[in-house]
Amino acid sequence: MNKEFIQPFVNGVRNVLKKIASVDVKTNEESFEENSEIKSKGVTSIISYSGKINGRFLIDMNSETAISLTRRITGRTYDTAKEPMVLSTVSELNNIIAGDGLTDINNKFSMGLRLVPPIVFTGDNALICLDKIPSESVNINTEYGDIRINIAFERSPEVSG
């Protein structure tokens, strides 16, 4: 996959976490190809987009990271990741990050991509499958734990300039 379609999302995570939660992120920015089955760390939010090509972006973290980030943002404490505020926060973070990333891609490559509202879930050993569509992940470290982002496009986008 063209790296120019991955970088906007990495920048999105960095900017949004800094702005909303004052959290600094560390990443080597290296992306690696994923299998068609991705094992959820605990809390996962998925956002799909359609336009010239279809695809989806996901953000995945363990329950403790989701709870800590939500506490950091809302200033309240939570017992489990099943609490609606924790799920909504992860979902909204994903919405803003994906919005940021896609705006960048749309501006650069005129892709006309439009976001679907995010879904978010938490559960025991959930598997996420997007068969036959290549996807790449980037690991991101924060002081609250690791976050994985994964970017998928139905076919490699042609850069139209």
């Binding site: 979902s91 509202p117 879930f121 025991d124």
Partner: peptide
């Protein structure tokens, strides 16, 4: 409307939030 490729989620006891 236009729609996107389905994503599968496999596993038990899953809490979802699919709409605000």
């Amino acid at each position: 409307t236009d729609f996107t490729t389905p994503t599968f989620i496999i596993g038990k006891n899953i809490y979802f939030l699919i709409s605000t």
